[in-house]
């Protein structure tokens, strides 16, 4: 599913003393199969941008096309759009509400018009996909789960209706390292099945470098760069301008280079850095 954003602007509380320009003339295209990382400091407009993709914020200036559908039009079928574009908010565990995990996960599919049986099947599938034991958790209250399990249950609630685009707002925030890795593994799994296009906001450059094939950098509501992680992290000026910092592996590579060790890699993750070092020293 291709997403095309044209000259998108958004202002919060227009014509009041609280007026704030959140987005200012942003244009880019996300191709099917892309994993796009959206980065930028706090208040740069990342979340505002993402909430446009499934019309949680309606387009006020500019255009967005999801597939061939112009979602800036007033007549857009919101339910169909939201079924297609799944959205996982920051700290999604705070959205759990139903008395059992199974029912909570079925909430989405039922709203999107699946019948009860189908919804139950989709929920079971989603709960298994996020790595939980369906029979064990299905009748538990979501409030009994641990923090990491809650997060996974909430993710199951979003992917249960099989969206073809997934928008993730800091999916790994507040999780331990194992939890983080599991979430990112899950995203890779999803890309192999029904959800080909992923857009994710993150402050963690390691995650962006290792998982995204494209990055979009926002700064004060403006699009600063639309490029690949290789190019972005190879350009010290760009990184400095956005005060985002480097992924750890790129940082190590740069330190080595300063000492005169030239490596033939962009070093976007630890493995590729290691491989490059092996190529150089262990023939």
């Amino acid at each position: 599913m291709r997403i095309k954003v044209e000259d998108l602007s958004y202002v919060y509380s227009p014509k009041t003393p609280f007026e704030k320009v959140a987005l200012d003339g942003v244009s880019f295209t996300v191709k099917e199969g892309d994993t796009v990382g959206i980065i930028g400091s706090t208040g740069s407009g990342k979340s505002t941008l993402c909430q446009h993709f499934n019309a949680l914020i309606r387009v006020t200036h500019g255009k967005i096309y999801v597939g061939d559908v112009d979602i800036s039009s007033k007549k857009t079928d919101l339910t169909a759009l939201r079924k297609q574009v799944g959205m996982l908010f920051q700290f999604p565990e705070y959205q759990l509400f139903d008395d059992t995990v199974a029912k909570d996960v079925q909430f989405g599919p039922l709203n999107f018009g699946f019948d009860r049986e189908e919804a139950a099947r989709l929920a079971a599938e989603a709960i298994k996909m996020v790595g939980m034991d369906y029979d064990e958790v299905k009748d538990k209250s979501p409030f009994e789960l641990s923090g990491g399990e809650k997060r996974r249950a909430a993710i199951a609630g979003v992917i249960a209706s099989k969206p073809s685009v997934l928008v993730l707002d800091e999916p790994t925030a507040g999780l331990d390292p194992i939890g983080k890795r599991e979430i990112l593994e899950l995203v890779k799994e999803l890309k192999k099945s029904f959800c080909k296009t992923v857009i994710m906001i993150s402050h963690n450059m390691d995650e962006i470098a290792a998982n995204c094939n494209r990055v979009i950098v926002l700064h004060d509501g403006k699009l600063l760069y639309d490029t690949t992680p290789e190019e972005l992290f190879a350009d010290p000026e760009a990184v400095a301008r956005t005060d985002l910092g480097y992924p750890h592996s790129v940082h190590i590579k740069r330190l080595l280079e300063a000492k005169g060790v030239k490596l033939d890699t962009a070093a976007l993750d630890a493995d590729s850095l290691l491989e490059a070092l092996k190529r150089r020293y262990c023939v």
């Binding site: 499934n54 949680l56 079924k83 909430f107």
Partner: peptide
């Protein structure tokens, strides 16, 4: 606001 958005994203109306 946040919770409503999240549930709307799951198709609530």
């Amino acid at each position: 606001d946040k919770i409503m958005m999240a549930q709307k994203a799951r198709g609530a109306s």
